[in-house]
Design a protein around this nucleic acid. Structure first.
Lengths: 241, 241
DNA sequence: CTAATCTTGCATACATTGTTAACTAAAGCA
DNA sequence: TGCTTTAGTTAACAATGTATGCAAGATTAG
């Protein structure tokens, strides 16, 4: 983007902001969401609490920034895994696995990010624009499904098999895409995403414990089933690790 | 259960407990989870905050009790809808819809109940027993799927199509059931539950807004698809209302 | 180089929270 | 009648988010 000839002050400020974020994250991980207090962060940094107000207007804003940073980290992890895979099927399988891997490795962070709306963060942006971080995250899977369909189309619902009300909404969303796609593809993407997100979030939130002690194999089974739905069932392969 | 000849004091106490719960719920709905403070509840009841400690050992315990009451309310709503439907397909469709309906009508309560593990409530019970409320809730759908399979079996995975690790876990869970079932049924139940819960929770948590302005039609599409998976695709019927 | 300004931090203060302790009055029971 | 249990009170403590005003350092203008 814009080449940044940082002045000395700006550099120090950026470093402080960075330290605040990492400290906040450390507190989140060690003490949970409740331990994520301004004063605790300041204390851990050897600062006074009001000093943090030089960097964030409120605790809420600080946490929002943290959420954003975590979303970016997760997205970057997905993109890295994607770019390391040679073929499309590998990209889809490994990105899905990386999503779960990240969630399981960072349950506190995952919980914060994906319940931020429930906590009251993630208020709709005042200027009505789209959250760019969220969009970049969504694009990882969106682009993969798109490319999959364009290069080796999988069976989808015909337009007249989709309920009218749903069709209108899918159409509206579709209109935001760079290239137009059959609505059935959009629908398939949503279904897949619901199952992927559902499985992972239920596991992290402990909502599968009633049935499964380790949801990993169930996740793989879902993945296999999703692969079949997307027409590459035969090319499913277990995780390399 | 046990016939309860309530003494006067016990009756008054029960009424107070009841009032605390309803007040707490009112605060939750009006002010969100953050507004759910001991002092606010006491204030709204015209009591002093420490008085609440005669009824609950801590704020956390009070909220846990509220979560439990809400779970019971939701489960009862599901059971009522189930018992009002004459046939099995109707029970399954309408129970699923009632789950979503309750969630949409009570988003604050739904969020509290289904993120309670994320908040740190729902700690495993000290005596290692199973949460009876959770079990009763799970049984609603569990029993319906069971009866569905027993009366009109749907296609399931054969045992040797299920990964060994997963099979072991399903078997272990299966052993808790009154009647033994093929593991494929258990697996189908989990898949369905993940999609049902996934769709509803994502809608309530605002995680589908990026694509859909009203997730109702998508929910119906999921329901139709689940019905097909369970062998009653042809008998799908739209909501009566 | 000096003086004005901007930035970053501090200590203090305030209202609010969960929780504990000490106390009081009423209810129930011998 | 007297003793115990219960349900409530007020006062206090520690911790939180946040607002204010001040001091010292960094940066910049003249």
């Amino acid at each position: 983007m814009t080449t940044a000839p940082l002045t000395r002050r700006e550099r120090l400020r950026a470093e402080t902001v960075e330290e605040i974020q990492t400290t906040a994250r450390r507190m989140l991980v060690s003490d949970g969401y409740d331990g994520l207090s301004l004063r605790a962060i300041a204390r851990a940094m050897g600062m006074s609490a009001p000093a943090l107000y030089r960097y964030y207007a409120s605790r809420e804003e600080l946490i929002s920034a943290l959420v954003d940073e975590l979303k970016i980290e997760l997205t970057t992890a997905l993109e890295t895994v994607r770019d390391a895979q040679p073929d499309l099927v590998g990209k889809l399988l490994e990105c899905s696995r990386e999503f779960r891997r990240w969630a399981m490795a960072h349950p506190a962070e995952f919980t914060l990010v994906f319940t931020s709306s429930a906590i009251g963060l993630d208020r709709p942006r005042e200027d009505g624009s789209v959250d760019p971080t969220g969009e970049r995250f969504g694009n990882v899977f969106g682009e993969l499904i798109t490319e999959l369909y364009l290069t080796r189309p999988f069976p989808i619902l015909a337009d007249d098999e989709i309920d009218t009300l749903l069709k209108d909404q899918l159409q509206e969303w579709n209109d935001c895409f760079p290239q137009p796609l059959p609505l059935g593809v959009t629908h398939a993407f949503l279904t897949c995403w619901i199952r992927l997100y559902g499985t992972v979030s239920m596991e992290v939130f402990g909502q599968l414990k009633f049935a499964l002690s380790d949801a990993g194999p169930m996740f793989e089974a879902e993945l296999r089933s999703l692969g079949a739905m997307l027409g590459f069932g035969g090319e499913y392969r277990p995780p390399s690790a």
